[in-house]
């Protein structure tokens, strides 16, 4: 089953996730007892079109980060396929996968732990260029890194500095510079603004937008801040316990949410306006009492809008 089939896009999807499953545990332990398997990602299908931003939201443990990692083959799916630019990536050997790797990158949540403290930030950004044999000449490489620094709003003179000299927002800019170093087509951004100071978040959101406009990037944007999702994304997928319970254009999801969980999630966003916020009544949703039934499938409810029923 593949969602979004009703859409008649001018172009083919860049990324297709087809019935992805990722199960953790379940193997036999030393003493022969089998642990219960955890279905972190359970039958997840979606498509992302070139230049599009798909938002992925859900509570912690819903499988949104795992979906992102499986999509980039950082973890192997238990079953299902990932089609990238028309080619099935699942089951490819490391060497066959390598040329695809430069085309898909990830940006992590915490720019404090995702930078190497013993590397200058310039070395950190040039590393992918070395690994993939791009710009083998050192001065050429330096020029490219300097250009990348400028592109993400950092002064190229910072290249020789170490991560501890930078603030969180600057570190995230360094990570983004590395992420775009190889001109990727697709970037998974896993909660990239969550760990940043509030006065910095808008800077990074704008940078993501600018880079998309400039480089035609395609994003899977994983977040729990729904107001930022609405601002950034074309479409949103809502995950609950490993399944997509609702997916559709941003407007459809925010204006006309169909799944009870989506409704609860939207009603829980604090509104930065005292007059509204004081009288807001969040809808409660007990996840354990309302687990999506195993046999439920995504049903169309509107234009490109699907809900698990």
């Amino acid at each position: 089953m593949s969602v979004d089939r009703t859409m008649t896009p001018p172009q083919k999807p860049l990324v297709i996730a087809n019935r992805l499953c990722k199960t953790f545990g379940g193997g036999r332990s030393l003493l022969g007892a089998s642990a219960p398997a955890l279905k972190a990602v359970n039958d997840v299908s979606f498509e992302i079109f070139p230049g599009e931003t798909l938002g992925l939201v859900g509570e912690s443990g819903s499988g949104k980060s795992t979906t992102g990692r499986v999509l980039l083959q950082l973890e192997e799916p238990t079953s299902g396929d990932i089609i990238f630019k028309g080619q099935n990536l699942t089951g490819l050997s490391k060497s066959l996968l390598k040329p695809h790797r430069r085309d898909m990158q990830i940006i992590f949540q915490d720019p404090y732990s995702s930078l190497n403290p013993r590397m200058t930030v310039g070395e950190f950004v040039s590393e992918p260029l070395i690994v993939h044999g791009v710009a083998t000449n050192k001065s050429e490489r330096n020029d490219r890194v300097a250009a990348l620094f400028r592109k993400v709003g950092l002064d190229p003179s910072f290249m020789t500095r170490y991560p501890h000299e930078f603030s969180g927002g600057q570190r995230q800019r360094v990570c983004i510079a590395r992420g775009i170093a190889l001109d990727p087509a697709f970037i998974v951004a896993d909660e990239p603004i969550t760990a940043l100071d509030v006065s910095i978040q808008a800077q990074i959101v704008n940078l993501f937008q600018d880079l998309q406009d400039e480089l035609g990037l395609t994003y899977l944007f994983i977040a729990h801040d729904l107001s930022m999702i609405r601002y950034l994304c074309h479409r949103v997928a809502v995950m609950l316990r490993g399944r997509i319970v609702e997916i559709g254009p941003c407007e459809a999801i925010f204006e006309n949410p169909q799944h009870a969980y989506t409704q609860a999630l939207l009603s829980a966003i604090p509104v930065p306006d005292p007059r509204i916020e004081r009288n807001r009544k969040p809808i409660t949703f007990d996840v354990s009492a309302n687990l999506p039934p195993e046999e439920a499938t995504l049903q169309p409810v509107g234009d490109r809008h699907f809900v698990l029923r």
Binding site: S167, Q170, S199, Q203, N206, S227, M228, R230, H234, E251
Partner: peptide, 23 residues
């Protein structure tokens, strides 16, 4: 701070206001 929040803004509307600089 208040101005840099999306305030229910949709994609493609105005650019977010950003406070320049670093902490």
């Amino acid at each position: 701070l208040l101005k840099s929040l999306p305030h229910g803004g949709k994609r493609g509307t105005t650019r977010l206001y950003q406070i320049p600089g670093n902490p």
